[in-house]
Design a binder for these strands. Structure first.
Lengths: 342, 342
DNA sequence: TTGAAAGCGTTACCAG
DNA sequence: CTGGTAACGCTTTCAA
């Protein structure tokens, strides 16, 4: 016997559907006796209310749509973990979609979420996204959108992430103070703000220390492990390699590590790697990277909290929110004793 | 302006809602001219159909509910990746819920999914689950349920996973053939079938090789990193440690590694670790474990394929399906040259 | 205390 | 070709 509805209960009890509906939600104007009869039968017939029929009426779904580029990237699974923790506390549910870094999949996902009338959308933009018409649509729909990690500029949506440019500057500054001057960059996608900002911070820091930027040591790439592999191979073909490589993220670093292994380049003795990353991942990488540590779980929590504020109507000003970061020193650099990071 | 509905289009065009509905779905009995007018206006007003209103009528949601114990466990994120790949190809969407290994959260999640009238439920049972009334409810609801990785016996639902007992036997057999005879076990939860089966396989193998099972070397635990840490600490208090430890899964192994690091026990020189795990994770562990390799991405794909078959009404027989596994040898064992694994 | 009726956004059947 | 109407499962307002 499949799931039943209120009508079935009403018919069996010879009362109206309205009465059943009210009894089920323990309304004041239903007799205790009637309620008991309804509850007992509901229990017996395994009645489970229809979520969407209910919400159809209330115009509020308590659903939050999430779009991530890649769920097998542990960064995003930790973000989702944070999102779901906050969602669970507030009786919200998550519709998870994955763009696979494809702009058209992302667009499809957003349309699906809008069609499900989610109360809000949390989005980390795919690497490929260029066409921004879909963001116009979201704006028009008045569904609140909060970017996390990666954002598209120009639509005045709230974004939460880190100050990538500043963080990259600090990381490279640290590397320089460790005594290195030959520093390369395996970049992320230059279509994303974080890709550009991390590269710009890298260049800022080199310039600040009067170190020339060598084109052969700056490779445009992406945020996947495969991207890191390809980027390293490209840099290696450009001629002599730097002492330290700054990878756009930890996945990319892992790809570089793959390439070095394949090429027989020892790590970290020959080349050190530093990257943007997160602690949970870093703890299990070999040998430990030196990273700018972003906490993805907190990022997810914070993003969801902001979303809830948005839905409640508080905090309506669109802005960019930065999470704190810190440098986590791994075994990937030979650090002279007198370097400290405040 | 918020999202509009068909009525708005109908009113603006001075036609009936029925006409709009049919025009939008390109029905045969609507004039080309009418269709164009409707489409143009829909486009202009940013009309996006209401997913759940539509499905309310069709009695099919194209939604699949997923319950995982822990999404920050990379095993499950890879499973989800596989599930979503197949789902995307077939126009299904995923409602993801996380039980955090808690039986009551799991039950809540299942009820939510049933209330959303998902077309099917994919479930990896939490460690804690004992009360099986909720599974009765699912059975009653006639919503197809497919277990992946971890199952509860006795309800005759389809389950997909690996033959844990056999795999554990093979893994321990391999360790013995490497020359080790002092082998301990950091177990998973004995409430789960996989926890029991892996332990039983371990015992089978020891018995087969006439190696006594030492209680001090068999610790009951769980599948998280924290569990692994605690279990190792317990075993260490029991007296002298074995040469090789068989951990219930890779997270557990990681926790054991944490404990060893804290206690200053070198790895893998003093103690080797073997575990159930998956390649993607293993590649980034230091030093690489020797694992029985389960491919979680394929597991997810397969689980979703079975689910789709179920929904279509094919393949209605409930059974246990085993995925193939293989041993992946890492740096965690000192292996003598003449050992090979067929 | 209960029930009739309208409505949420959509589709489907049948008339015209 | 177009439209009225009932239906999907539920809630809410207003009468009785």
């Amino acid at each position: 016997m499949a799931l039943i509805n209120q009508s079935t209960i009403a018919k069996t009890l010879n009362v109206s559907r309205a009465t059943v509906s009210k009894a089920l939600k323990d309304a004041d104007d239903i007799s205790a006796e009637m309620k008991k009869r309804v509850w007992d039968l509901a229990e017996k017939l395994n009645y489970i209310p229809h979520y969407h029929a209910k919400r159809l009426h209330s115009q509020k779904t308590n659903l939050i749509g999430v779009v991530v580029p890649d769920i097998s990237n542990s960064f995003f699974s930790f973000v989702i973990d944070g999102i779901m923790d906050i969602a669970g506390q507030s009786d919200y549910h998550i519709i998870l979609t994955v763009s696979r870094e494809k702009a058209d999949t992302e667009e499809e996902n957003i349309l699906t979420l809008l069609s499900m009338r989610v109360d809000g959308i949390l989005l980390a933009v795919s690497e490929e996204t260029r066409d921004t018409r879909i963001f116009e649509k979201i704006k028009q729909s008045t569904v609140p959108l909060v970017y996390f990690d990666r954002a598209i500029e120009g639509f005045n949506f709230t974004a939460i992430g880190i100050d990538d440019r500043d963080a990259a500057r600090k990381l490279i500054d640290f590397v320089v103070r460790c005594g290195y001057r030959h520093i390369g960059h395996l970049g992320g996608s230059m279509l994303t703000d974080i890709g550009r900002n991390r590269r710009d911070g890298y260049i800022d820091a080199l310039k600040h220390h009067h170190i020339p930027v060598r084109d052969a040591w700056v490779v445009e790439g992406g945020f996947t492990r495969a991207d890191g592999y390809r980027s390293f191979m490209r840099m290696q073909q450009n001629g002599p390699l730097p002492e330290v490589i700054f990878a756009a993220n930890d996945q990319n670093a892992l790809g570089a590590y793959d390439a070095m292994k394949e090429l027989g380049i020892s790590f970290p003795e020959t080349i050190g790697i530093v990257a943007f990353g997160h602690h949970e991942f870093n703890r299990i990488i070999t040998p430990s990277l030196t990273i700018i540590n972003v906490n993805p779980y907190n990022l997810g929590k914070k993003a969801m909290e902001i979303m809830l504020g948005r839905i409640r109507g508080e905090d309506m000003c669109d802005k960019k929110i930065f999470l704190p970061v810190e440098i986590e020193i791994g075994e990937s650099l030979q650090i002279s004793e007198n370097v400290s990071f405040k």
